[in-house]
Design a protein around this nucleic acid. Sequence first.
DNA 1: TCAGTTTATCATATCATCATGATGTTAGCA
DNA 2: TGCTAACATCATGATGATATGATAAACTGA
Lengths: 141, 141
Amino acid sequence: MWLNSTAQNALRAVLYLADHAADGPVRVDDIAASLRSPRNYLSKTLHALARAGVLRSARGPKGGFQLADPPDRLALSRVVGPFAPAGERRCLVGRADCGNAHPCLAHHRWVRVAAIVEDFFGQTTVADLLKQTAETRAHST
Amino acid sequence: MWLNSTAQNALRAVLYLADHAADGPVRVDDIAASLRSPRNYLSKTLHALARAGVLRSARGPKGGFQLADPPDRLALSRVVGPFAPAGERRCLVGRADCGNAHPCLAHHRWVRVAAIVEDFFGQTTVADLLKQTAETRAHST
DNA sequence: TCAGTTTATCATATCATCATGATGTTAGCA
DNA sequence: TGCTAACATCATGATGATATGATAAACTGA
């Protein structure tokens, strides 16, 4: 819905890595198989995350990808940001000059909603999502 | 940001039509010139809105487009909905089977945010946005 | 150093979206 | 009827996202 499929894959891969943090570096093949995601395309995506400082990558035997920071230091915006369209504006109708100074008709109502969404990505960490499962498991058990 | 450019054009065109409701049918050429939007592409977009019951279209002299309902009966979701990707799911990471029964890791936190956004589109009407300008004008005058 | 493993990257293919131009279709009016 | 105005639609192309396959580069362990 809100994220393009590349960003979705990136987020799923990061969650997978966070869940397998204890295993050390994880190979692209393993992640791709688990997510049922195309290998080389995922490789490119993960490499972009490495460039963004979200992951660390290592080549050769014993190589693979792992988180560069602990999950509670990793906000979703850092995972998803590298895959957002370049000129991402905040105007609902796409006006380049829309802002508090020159608002479009929808601006004042829309900024409030947009802020909530941005907060979600900025405040929620990967650790929060993993915690969520722990709670769910506690309930369902 | 959140809407593709077709949906943005649709919304801007509808706002334009609501603002010029008194003029009777408005020609595509006039709308396209005002929005600086490609004529034929806009025509296709407006036709889709007509099929969706948002607009009425008439061909020939004295023809053009106009709103099918009063602006206060026209929620933004009706304007924007016809241009949302078909399989639009609500799962943040794109899992088809994600829901309260089989939640993905992000589900519980994300549904709250998604609901707020959906409320915005469902509750806000075109009339609300026009009203907004009136208020802004009142302040700035 | 050499062989094997794994990521990095390039060239290319595919598909949907966005867009243009040409042509078809319908309505009003003399 | 026939002309003109206006929307409707078709064929085609441009662009960017998604994806595949081949190859390069780097690391490990022997």
